[in-house]
Design a protein around this nucleic acid. Structure first.
Length: 814
RNA sequence: GGGAGGUUAGCUCAGCGGUAGAGCACCUGCCUUACACGCAGGGGGUCGCGGGUUCGAAUCCCUCACCUCCCACCA
């Protein structure tokens, strides 16, 4: 590293009087990148540590959730790197099928054209151009945040390697019978023009109407009518039966009879099915098998046909009859109601609040539609994912997610993986002219199997989450067992928001177990969602979105990182407000000025790689003891994913122990007024280690300051990024010294309080007489000194007497 | 209908069996030779309600209330 290392070493001018993160942050990011210090080794004899970035949308913009994850991922990576691990944080981006395609389609609409007009090939050229144009943005934003990714390993879900992995996975699952093609009722988004998975359907509670419609009975049944209740009258045009509960006395006599569908005249047999709720509506359900999932199930149980009356654009089909064909489904609803009213068949309309599935991406109500799609049977994989979690091979943090995890995996359903889009991994299936299907890794392979090259590839692409489900290993070279895969898989930790636990985390675990036999990461830390100061979810429509890069401009990356990190409390969403950002920027200012003070006062002293506390005075031994305990604490907190607690401890040590007390205690010694042994060395050494402890959270500021510390080269010749993470120093710890100093500090606080209460002007040099009784009474109960009674009291008085010059200095008294 | 989380100082939140904490905000002094992005001092809470366990409960258990979110095929 020596050659690279030298480039990292910075200039050594004095710290500017003004603290301005913009003056150094970008420069450091550039220097780090150029020196290649974030490149991981493979192979390596060192312990591996690996985090995969949750790949952001390649043409998107990072939001604060990304910033939070980035801060935590970088924290862990830097911490492990400094601790000696072979740390890899692998960056990359996702092609983000629907959302990216929508962006380009919107662009095309502005130009007065569209994807269909362009045709698939030219449209995809536009997509790639778009990708090339915006691809750099993500890296730029990660750079601004100080991300120590290994960019030499950057991946994209549509690059050659990952595309090969996707085809390999598809072919294998198909071969195992887990991927299949078939005609089923799927969630269809008329706006997007594609099928979507169950997860992409968002249930919304809406105020609708419940229509009671009279269906005349067939002559054979003796005439009369029955009344059915429905929220979607337009679907009646596709009715093929009417159902009642088998035990429902009211309708039992209708078994074997039939009604006549109004407006159409079709014969509707009655069937009995236990899925019918007797208490809802009239207890009779009209069955529209091809436009309602539960009707579909019931129809299948009774061998009933279905009729598609709504098409992929959400318009009524020819099957709906000449009066309705071509109408939008909601216009058709109004017209059906109107016609029923005119025919005197509308018995009642009630207000009805119910839940309706909406397309998460486009917002409109989903239309259940019969359609030929590719599916993946997840049941076996889900069972193994469940088992992995139950056996502790997969840790969810916080643990409260375990029940949710179990519930979802226990009730998993087939995953619809095909999308009627163009941007994505095209399904690796080819069809012969006579309709035979060949699933293969390539056209050549398919042609060889088919015995002809007159083949047409399936036009659909795969759900984005199919490729991101392979991310932890496809990025490392799978299916080939490349050196990166051997070195870093399975990875160490995954950090992501709980909102994609099922979309992404569960799929990675299932596919990872299936293809590699291992859980792709030992632990998953699920973060909360970043919200605004009022705790409201950020959204463009609300206009309360904060841009992480703008916050970096305003407060500095370190302050943004520290704020987000200290707010990462397990199981809670994160309300972000500017006061906190300003507060942690002030913390940066504090560090900056503490360093300025030290650098101006330590003379020829140097940072010490090791320090023997013997021969040091009490204040020096006290701060070293505190520092050692801090190192233990921070390490433990990082290891336990309690980043908030680690931040608090770092903050209070630096501001409280170091600045408020130790630096003040050091002043008389450094000025020569009351010299003590090695005060400068201790101050510099404490600063060095504090900065190293803080570095994973505040990389820029700590590097900038650390480079100026005389003697820092003895710790690492080039950069704080590779300097060892401070460990506990048992020899520094002393409960006794800490207790003695606590007494002194307590006395100082009391004197200051008295002085303030008595309204004595700060400048007045007043005389203070400390009697032994004062000391005795004022000692906090919990100090060990007090417990040993009178003799200890004497010792305490002696301690205070010996250090009276410190009391004088800190209280400004004579 | 299931499930998860929340209710602690004006605000945002830690604490989760041993006499209430932080940051910010607020009040009073201070430009004390690193820092006004600062220093020192200070005020402020019956820890959602009601029960229970315990020598002792924000902290464990139960009831209730109110908020947030996730899952779920009553048309």
């Amino acid at each position: 590293m020596s050659e690279q290392g030298k480039e990292v070493v910075s200039r050594r001018e004095e710290l500017d009087k003004r603290f301005d993160p913009r003056a150094y942050e970008s420069a450091w990011q550039r220097r780090w990148a150029e020196s290649g210090i974030f490149r991981a080794e493979a192979p390596s004899t060192r312990r591996p540590f690996c985090i995969m970035i949750p790949p952001p949308n390649v043409t998107g913009k990072l939001h604060l959730g990304h910033a939070l994850q980035t801060a935590l991922e970088d924290l862990l990576t830097r911490w492990r790197r400094m601790s000696g691990d072979n740390a890899l944080w692998l960056p990359g981006t996702d092609h983000a099928g629907i959302s990216t395609q929508l962006m380009v389609e919107r662009q095309l609409a502005v130009e007065g054209t569209g994807r269909r007009t362009l045709g698939r090939e030219r449209f995809l050229e536009r997509m790639w151009a778009w990708k090339r144009q915006y691809h750099g943005n993500i890296r730029e934003q990660l750079d601004r945040l100080g991300a120590s990714c290994d960019w030499s390993r950057e991946r994209f879900t549509l690059d050659a390697g990952l595309s090969a992995a996707v085809r390999e996975a598809f072919v294998r699952l198909y071969g195992e019978g887990l991927i299949y093609r078939g005609e089923y009722l799927v969630n269809w988004s008329p706006v997007l023009g594609t099928a979507i998975s169950d997860l992409e359907v968002e249930t919304k509670t809406v105020a609708g109407k419940l229509y009671y419609i009279a269906y005349p009975l067939e002559e054979a049944a003796g005439g009369g009518e029955v009344v059915v209740a429905t929220t979607r009258p337009e679907t009646m045009l596709g009715d093929t039966a009417i159902a009642f509960h088998p035990d429902d006395e009211r309708y039992r006599h209708l078994r074997g009879e039939a009604a006549v569908l109004p407006l159409i005249g079709r014969r509707l047999p009655f069937v009995a099915d236990a899925a019918v709720e007797r208490d809802f509506g009239t207890g009779l359900v009209k069955l529209t098998p091809f436009h309602d999932p539960s009707d579909f199930e019931m129809a299948r149980r009774h061998g009933l046909p279905g009729i598609t009356v709504i098409d992929q654009q959400g318009r009524m089909t020819a099957e709906a009859g000449p009066d309705f064909a071509g109408l939008d489904r909601f216009a058709a609803r109004a017209k059906v109601v109107e016609r029923l009213g005119a025919a005197g068949l509308l018995r009642k309309v009630e207000d009805h609040v119910h839940n309706v599935g909406h397309s998460q991406r486009s917002g409109e109500p989903v239309e259940p539609l019969l359609s030929t799609q590719w599916f993946c049977d997840m049941s076996g994989m889900a069972a193994r994912a469940l088992q992995a979690q139950r056996e502790g091979r997969l840790r969810l943090i916080p643990e409260s997610w375990e029940k949710t995890w179990e519930h979802w995996l226990e009730n998993i359903r087939p995953w619809c993986i095909s999308r009627q889009l163009w941007w994505g991994h095209q399904v690796p299936a080819w069809y012969t002219e006579d309709g035979r299907c060949f699933v293969a890794r390539s056209f050549e392979e398919a042609a060889a199997a088919a015995g002809t090259d007159r083949l047409t590839q399936d036009p659909d692409v795969l759900d984005t989450w199919f490729s991101s489900g392979l991310w932890p290993f496809s990025t490392l070279g799978w299916p080939q067992r490349m050196v990166d895969f051997e070195t870093f898989y399975p990875t160490s930790v995954l950090i992501t928001g709980y909102d994609i636990l099922f979309f992404w985390v569960a799929r990675m675990v299932m596919l990872g177990l299936h293809f590699t036999g291992e859980v792709p990461f030992a632990a998953v830390h699920l973060t909360g969602l970043v919200r605004d100061a009022e705790g409201v979810k950020m959204s463009k429509t609300r206009g309360n979105v904060l841009d992480p890069v703008e916050l970096v401009d305003e407060y500095g990356a370190d302050a943004v990182r520290f704020t987000l990190t200290s707010l990462d409390v397990p199981g809670r969403d994160i309300p972000l407000n500017r006061d906190q950002l300003a507060g942690y920027r002030a913390f940066g200012n504090k560090i900056w000025n503490a360093a300025r003070f030290a650098l101006g006062r330590v003379g020829e002293a140097q940072v010490q790689p090791a320090l023997d506390p013997r021969g040091l005075a009490a204040p020096e031994r006290w701060i070293l003891s505190r520092l050692s305990r801090l190192a233990t604490d921070v390490d433990a907190r990082f290891g336990a994913f309690r980043f908030d607690e680690a931040c608090n401890r770092l903050y209070h040590f630096f501001w409280g122990d170091l600045c408020d007390w130790y630096i003040e205690l050091a002043k008389p010694a450094l000025s020569g007024e009351a010299p003590r042994p090695r005060t400068g060395e201790v101050l510099l050494t404490v600063l060095d280690r504090s900065l190293r402890l803080l570095h994973p959270v505040m990389p820029f500021l700590t590097e900038e300051v650390w480079q100026r510390l005389p003697g820092h080269e003895a710790i690492h010749p080039a950069t704080i990024c590779l300097a060892p993470y401070p460990a506990r120093e048992e020899a520094w710890e002393s409960a006794e010294v800490e207790a003695e100093m606590e007494v002194l500090m307590h006395v100082v606080t009391r004197v200051r309080g008295l002085r303030s209460e008595m309204g004595l002007p700060p400048k007045a040099r007043i005389a203070l007489y400390l009697g032994a009784s004062f000391a005795r009474e004022e000692i906090p109960k919990e100090t060990p000194v007090e417990k040993s009674g009178g003799e200890a009291g004497g010792r305490r008085a002696r301690f205070l007497a010996e250090h009276q010059h410190l009391v004088r200095s800190l209280c400004r008294v004579e």
